[in-house]
Every structure is written in structure tokens, then in C-alpha cells.
Amino acid sequence: MKKLADIKGIKKWVALLLTYAVVQLLVSLNIINDYIMATLTTICINIILAVSLNLITGFTGQFSLGHAGFMSIGAYTCAIIIMRYPSPVSFITGLFLGAIFAALLGFIVGLPTLRLRGDYLAIATLGMAEIIRIVFLNLDITNGAAGLFIEVQYTNWLWLFIFTTGTVILITNFINSSHGRACISIREDEIAAEAMGINTTKYKVIAFIIGAFCAGIAGALYASYFYFIKPDLFGFLKSIDILVIVVLGGLGSISGSILAAFLLALISSLLQSFPEIRMVIYAVLLIVIMLFRPQGIMGSKELSLSAFKSLGGIFERRNGGER
């Protein structure tokens, strides 16, 4: 299936494997301690969430404020399964089952609501996520507001690495395929896209399903790393958090989302020492960034390897071709 023939492709795979091996080594040498590992986990989960939301909002142009809702489906499904049958196999089963449930919900919610445009869709998805949260608050199997304690931790660096790079690669590939271009054409001009033979509803739903599926995976990874989940973790604020990463990185830029996930983790660990004003500073940062760089770090451009050579170039892009 895979076409690895060209040298560039091989280089990429080598770089990926090397990243995995180095981090794994540092983990086993305990240079990466629990605290750093938790941060790294958060970053990976946020990358999955942001990249998948970017597919929906940045590339397909469908404004969603309910991504945390999909995440919670994955988290609860996986948590409930591994609490009953604690084993690595049931972790993976739970993870995929959670992702499938999330995708299913994405389909069910997406089909009728995707006719809505812009803000209306945003509000509808927000409402959907709130409904999910309230349902989880009231079910017995989810233990209501008290939440669930998961005693075993299955999420480790190997799984994180596989699912994070997997999500990034598959979504990037998707965007660079004809199907991905169909999604992008919807963002650009829905009426023209439809007139050029694109079934816009179908591609909106596809973007929604893929996005929800990945969010489900992220939720499952979260549940089996941090031991504890409750409905309020997946509320409006969490959806906003994900959206902020996407917008900060640049709508329509995968590398931007990844960069922003790292940046935000950095900021939040710096702010850890000021718990009282942490959120205030976060809020001010948001406002300031939007005032001075509303298109995000990357705009809709992608960071390429050559761009690393001239890091200064990022700032020259300011006058580039962003929207």
C-alpha cells in the first residue's frame, strides 16, 4: 500500500522513528519524569484534538464548538471498558469503540445540523456537547458528577506516539487528496463547490466523522492516562481550549496546530506558579494574540523542513499571502 520509494519519504520515517526512540530512551532513563511525561501526554492529546478540529473548522470551514463532546464519548467508552476488563487488549478495543461511537454521533449530529452556516452551526455543536455533558452527569454507568476513577494506566509513550503521528499523517494525507480538496472547496465557496459537482453535505459529514473519530481517540488516551474523568472536564471550556489551539496555530495549518499545542503547554506550565491569575493571563494572551495576529502563528501555511533553516522567515510571512 505505502509508497516509500522516494528518499524524502524514507527520511520522514527515519526522523519519526528516531523521535520515538529518543523519547523512549529518555523515559526509560527517567530523564523524562512523571511531570514531563504528563505534559507530553497533554501535548499529544491536544495535537490529536487540534488537528482533527482543524480538519472540520480550518479546512472544511465548519465552525464547531463541541469538540470536547466527541472527546468525552471516547473517554467514557474506553474508561468503562477498561474498568470492567482491565487489559491492554480491552484498552485498544475501548479506544476504537470510543472513537467509533464518537464518529457515529458525529454522523447523527452532523447530518441535520450541517445545513446550518457559520455561527448557527457553532451554536448547534455547542448545544450538542452540552447535552452530552448533561447526559453523562445523569447516567449511572458514568457515575454522574463524581466521575470515574480508572485504576490502571494503559496509555504510554508508544500508544501516544502511534496515535498522534497516525492522526497527523492520515489527516495530512487526506487533505492532500482529492477528497481533502473537496472539503477545502466547501470552505472557499460552498455554492461554487456544489456547482462543480462536489456533494458538499457528504464532505461536511465526512470531515465531521473523521474529526469526531480522532477526538474519540484523544478522549480514550486521556482517560487511561490521567486515571480520572468527570463530565465537567469536557465542557464548553475544553472545546474552547481546543479551538484556541487551532486558531492560535492558524486555521488550515496542520503544523500550526502542532506548534500551538506545544506553545500552549509551555505557557500553561509557566503559569502554573501563579494559580490565582493563571486564567486571567491566559485570557489576556488570547485577546492580545487575536488583536495583533488574528490569522494565528502560521496563517494557512505549512511549516516545511526548509523553513526551519530560516526561522526568521516565519516573521516575514506576516505580509505573505494569508487571508
Binding site: 500500500m1 505505502k2 509508497k3 494525507n173 487528496s177 482529492s178 477528497h179 462543480m196
Partner: peptide, 20 residues
């Protein structure tokens, strides 16, 4: 290329895995 989408011969998974 977007206009040619309606006649492409590969499905979603081929697109995601960049098959032959």
C-alpha cells in the same frame, strides 16, 4: 482539480494512505 473530483477513481482510504 476540484472540478475533476467527481470522476476520481480512488476512495477515502486510498486518499488517507496515499496508495499507488
Amino acid at each position: 482539480r476540484i472540478s475533476m473530483h467527481k470522476n476520481i477513481k480512488y476512495g477515502l482510504l486510498h486518499g488517507m494512505f496515499h496508495s499507488r
